[in-house]
């Protein structure tokens, strides 16, 4: 057997130098494979569709709804229940709630995306350094992270907004910063669990630098927990933004952020429950969709689950 084997190897090699047949085997797209697995997960697809719809609504609002539309006061039209003219009804100043809710999509999606992206990039960078290099690097990073984690996210957000002043950008920064320590802990923990593997030593043996090993060999093993954390964080960030807006620390008052809409409507809960109901449904749908998509992504990105 072994003799035949070696002959095959040698003859393959000879045939090879002539043709360089390798061109025909292109890389299989990792993205495409993950997508195929994601597609078969009904929950994840539901989440994805909801998120796409939200994005479409946002695009629609950018194209067709002006700031005047959502600000125009019409005292003749106060507290109208949902109708054909006003699908979500009108609020205490006669403004169309549908327009305001749709207009508010941009704030929640931006908060969900940018604050998590900020927390993810900063947190994973420092978490990877801490987990992989250990020693005093880890001590410093983790103690700073502990201090950040010890302050409740809402309070930290309020402090940051109070210091920087209420504006949408400051809201993003506030929530982004409160996201960092979760990502530091998460990435450090999963890096610790793989950094002792033999493949790390094997990577050193082919001459890879420590920094490159940390980020190109070890970090990819942590992708699935990070994806799940990130999508869960999107949901909580949207909620946190709504919460901060609800207590007046978010988007400045007349702008229709979802939390601010609910805050506005809570005074009229008995008289006009639709004022809190519709923005509430939007918040719930968005966070729910993110969580479902996150779970689906975790399964789809894990090459070990491939059939």
């Amino acid at each position: 057997m072994s003799r035949g084997q070696t002959e095959t190897i040698v003859s393959r090699k000879e045939g090879h130098s002539a043709t360089l047949a390798s061109r025909k085997y292109k890389k299989k797209s990792a993205f495409l494979e993950s997508w195929n697995r994601l597609r078969t997960n009904p929950g994840a697809m539901f989440g994805l569709i909801v998120i796409i719809l939200m994005v479409l609504l946002m695009v629609y609002s950018f194209m067709f709804i002006t700031e005047e539309d959502v600000m125009a006061i019409n005292s003749a039209n106060r507290f109208k229940p949902p109708s054909a003219a006003h699908p979500f009804g009108t609020d205490s100043m006669g403004r169309d709630l549908f327009m305001r809710t749709v207009y508010g999509t941009r704030y929640s999606l931006a908060v969900g995306f940018f604050s998590v992206a900020f927390g993810l990039v900063v947190g994973v960078f420092f978490g990877t350094l801490a987990g992989y290099f250990g020693g005093w690097v880890e001590e410093i990073i983790m103690r700073v992270s502990d201090v950040m984690a010890s302050i409740p996210g809402m309070l930290l957000g309020m402090v940051i907004v109070a210091v920087l002043g209420p504006s949408f950008l400051n809201l993003l920064i506030a929530i982004g910063v409160s996201n960092i320590s979760g990502f530091i802990r998460m990435s450090r923990a999963s890096i610790l669990s793989v950094k002792g593997s033999e493949f790390v030593e094997a990577a050193r043996a082919i001459g890879m630098s420590e920094f490159r090993i940390a980020f190109s060999q070890v970090l990819p093993n942590s992708v699935s927990p990070l994806i799940v954390t990130a999508t869960a964080r999107i949901a909580t960030s949207v909620l946190a933004a709504a919460g901060l807006s609800f207590i007046g620390f978010g988007v400045p008052v007349p702008l229709p952020e979802w939390g601010a809409l609910i805050s506005d409507g809570r005074n009229y809960l008995g008289r006009a429950p639709h004022l809190t109901l519709f923005p509430g449904i939007f918040i719930m749908l968005t966070t729910f969709a993110c969580s479902l998509l996150g779970d689906g992504l975790r399964d789809a990105l894990d090459p070990k689950l491939k059939q």
């Binding site: 299989k28 990792a30 033999e198 030593e201 990577a203 082919i206 001459g207 992708v223 090459p303």
Partner: peptide, 27 residues
């Protein structure tokens, strides 16, 4: 930095356990 240039280029190593010496998430 100089060691990194030599490892893998002048001298290479095959490890004992093939089950753990490959990175599971990279093709």
């Amino acid at each position: 930095k100089q060691l990194e240039k030599i490892r893998g280029k002048e001298i290479s190593m095959i490890f004992q356990d093939p089950m753990t010496s490959l990175n599971p998430v990279i093709s």
